[in-house]
């Protein structure tokens, strides 16, 4: 097992860009006055001539990225998720998605764990927005190693991709030695037969914690990490539902339109089983320390354990 690191996925993203710069001379990185926060600053330092600060104008940034892509560049257009996926939604839809341009839209500071900045900046809707755009790949990596692999995969893939980044430093749990990232493929972190827990992003490590606790209490839960929310790994999700009969989804996102809905959509067509969604329950967040907010909104291992036991009647 390789070194365990505690790092925010935004930082892993910035590092990945800088590392890929040489290999991919077409990569250009755009930001909207948040390079220090989104960590594109790491790329800027390594490769200043291919970094474009667009100022506080996310809609224009996405359009500029589209124009660059028509000329063979691979632009990573980065801002907070609220702005790159939220404010510029229609630019992403019409200037990037519709012409299927090779632009990577990156949303940092996603979810409730933004913390103190409060509701205006806690984007719990980005996955829903990006999922609805035809042809858009939606990635939500869970730790440092997965993020680095995801950024590479996004650069290798031709077409629009949305990548979700977190602000909060998280401990890595993937093994860097044998970690393999495949677009559109979920990862079974633990096999189990009583129930399936499907988690994404920041919540995967918390679900992993929950599954360990459940095991101690005699509950054999399967855990799947879905880093690619679109296209979702239908085969893996359906197989798990068939074999365990019940599913819980866990995400740091509104329960409307995110991972939970993506899973429900697959299962309602191919293997209808009861699905319980853990996420932000269609409310706004508020200011506070990230960890306290995650606890308050039920986005922790204890709540996953409790919900699982309730679902299983134990």
């Amino acid at each position: 097992m390789a070194e365990m690191v505690k790092k925010a996925t935004r930082e892993s993203y910035g590092e990945a860009l800088a590392e890929l710069a040489k290999e991919y001379p077409q990569i250009v990185v755009l930001d909207a006055d948040l390079a220090a926060a989104t960590k594109t600053g790491i790329f800027k330092k390594a490769c200043p001539e291919r970094f474009v600060d667009c100022g506080i104008s996310e809609c224009n940034m996405v359009g500029v990225a589209a124009g660059l892509a028509t000329c063979g560049k691979i632009p990573f257009a980065t801002s907070f998720a609220m702005f790159s996926a939220g404010r510029a939604f229609e630019q992403v839809r019409n200037s990037v998605g519709y012409p299927h341009l090779n632009v990577k839209i990156v949303g940092s500071h996603a979810g409730i764990s933004v913390g103190e900045d409060g509701a205006t900046h806690q984007c719990n809707e980005d996955i829903a927005l990006m999922r609805t755009i035809p042809g858009m790949v939606v990635l939500n990596p869970s730790d440092h190693y997965e993020m680095k692999a995801a950024v590479r995969a996004a650069a290798e893939y031709y077409g629009p991709v949305y990548i979700r980044l977190g602000r909060l430093a998280v401990e890595s749990f993937n093994n860097s030695d044998d970690y393999k990232f495949e677009l559109g493929k979920g990862i079974t972190l633990r096999d189990g037969k009583d129930i399936t827990i499907i988690a994404t992003g920041l919540m995967v490590s918390r679900a992993l914690e929950a599954v360990k606790t459940l095991e101690e209490q005699g509950i054999d839960a399967r855990l799947i990490n879905i880093h690619t929310i679109k296209p979702i790994d239908r085969e893996l999700v359906v197989k798990a539902a068939k074999e365990t009969g019940r599913v819980i989804t866990v995400e740091e996102h509104n329960v409307i339109g995110g991972l939970g809905d993506a899973v429900c959509s697959v299962l309602s067509e191919e293997c209808p089983v009861p699905v319980t969604k853990i996420g932000v329950n269609d409310v706004y967040g508020h200011s506070g320390p990230a960890m306290a907010l995650l606890d308050e909104f039920g986005l922790n291992a204890a709540h996953i354990v409790e919900t699982t036991k309730k679902v299983l009647g134990k």
């Binding site: 474009v52 809609c59 224009n60 940034m61 996405v62 359009g63 500029v64 990225a65 589209a66 124009g67 660059l68 892509a69 028509t70 000329c71 063979g72 560049k73 632009p75 630019q91 019409n94 200037s95």
Partner: peptide
Amino acid sequence: GQGVSAACGMALAA
């Protein structure tokens, strides 16, 4: 309003 931003991107690429 969107086309002109893409034109900027093309000009920047040049």
